[in-house]
């Protein structure tokens, strides 16, 4: 199956078997290894990416679905010369990263959450992030990090 879509800002094409998942295509065809497989069954959220700004478990979505759509992975955040997205900066600064395996999925889910609700309460963050599992941090510092980032990327310092 031949697909064309936007990937991290570039127009790309790919040819993959029909049963290929979005996760498999992103990791195997495009070597976007920041997309992590934690369970393969949509239970842990490690493979979260954005499709047309919405967060999805890429392990559950067939690659075919993104034809003509806009896909963003952790590699598409930030910019050249090591510039980071404010969310990435906040995760570093607030100690929200330990083993780091869940981190890319966490950041992408948070990105989608803030796109819908630019200044969520701590409870809204908890419910908005409920699909992403972390075994290291106890979530507290991830909530702190997300809370510190406002609409437009300013750091309002609410969480610190």
């Amino acid at each position: 199956m031949k697909l064309s879509f936007q990937l991290n800002g570039d127009a790309v094409t790919a040819e993959v078997p029909d049963h290929t998942t979005l996760l498999e295509m992103l990791r195997d065809e495009f070597e976007l290894l920041g997309v992590k497989e934690g369970c393969g069954h949509g239970e842990c959220g490690s493979c979260t990416v954005l499709v047309d700004q919405k967060s999805v478990n890429s392990c559950l979505m067939l690659a075919a679905y993104v034809n003509g759509k806009n896909v963003q992975t952790i590699e598409g955040l930030g910019g050249a010369q090591g510039r980071l997205d404010p969310l990435q900066e906040a995760f570093v600064k607030h100690g929200a990263v330990q083993c780091g395996f869940c981190t890319p999925g966490m950041v992408m889910s948070a990105k989608a959450l803030l796109a819908e609700n630019p200044s969520p309460s701590r409870d809204e963050i908890r419910w908005g992030m409920a699909g992403n599992l972390c075994r290291c941090t106890g979530y507290v510092k991830i909530v702190d990090a997300i809370e510190s980032v406002c609409k437009g990327g300013c750091s309002c310092g609410k969480g610190s």
């Binding site: 920041g34 992590k36 590699e75 930030g78 570093v92 100690g95 981190t103 890319p104 950041v107």
Partner: peptide, 9 residues
């Protein structure tokens, strides 16, 4: 290594 991890690297 948080910088590296937060970029999926």
């Amino acid at each position: 290594d948080a910088l590296e991890k937060v970029q999926g690297k």
